[in-house]
């Protein structure tokens, strides 16, 4: 199966740019990975650190794509790769538009880290 990156390169580039810009606005501490660790192949736009936790972000404005990404990357094989990279959680963001405020992600952080049972991979309605 082709990845989304190959199917819609322009859209993915735009999304990647948006994730970088949003991460900056949201004050996230981005984790640098060597180029050899291709996060794109894991459907990941970026990884950030929140305290002791590392969270990978993926996502789309298209709900079907969100579901598709979630179905694909929640598989055990991907989870193991993420763990090997020190990633604790994958959040597949369901984006309303590309103008979310920093506060939108902050609310998710507050609610997620308040959960007793935190899923390793989840769809997050931003």
């Amino acid at each position: 199966m082709k990845t989304l990156m190959i199917e819609q390169p322009e859209k993915q580039t735009m999304l990647s740019q948006w994730f970088c810009q949003y991460a900056k606005e949201a004050g996230l501490k981005i984790v640098d990975y060597p180029a050899s660790e291709s996060l794109e192949d894991l459907g990941i736009h970026l990884v950030f650190e929140h305290g002791q936790n590392r969270i990978a972000l993926s996502g789309s404005t298209d709900e079907n794509e969100v579901n598709e990404v979630f179905e694909r990357y929640q598989q055990e094989a991907y989870t193991e790769i993420r763990q090997a990279l020190g990633i604790d959680y994958l959040w597949v963001l369901k984006l309303t538009n590309l103008s979310h405020s920093a506060n939108d992600l902050f609310e998710v952080i507050c609610q997620f880290f308040d959960l007793e049972q935190k899923p390793e991979c989840s769809i997050v309605d931003l």
Binding site: T96, N97, S99, H100, S101, N103, D104, E107, C110, Q111, D114, L115, E116, D125, L126
Partner: peptide
């Protein structure tokens, strides 16, 4: 200020001091 109309109810609940996530350990942060 927000552009996210889909979350208006949640945002209103928050500024009224209502819980954001009832399943959380701290039921109402």
């Amino acid at each position: 200020v927000t552009t996210n109309a889909t979350k208006e109810a949640d945002k209103l609940r928050k500024i009224r001091g209502h819980p954001g996530n009832e399943e959380g350990r701290n039921a109402n942060n």
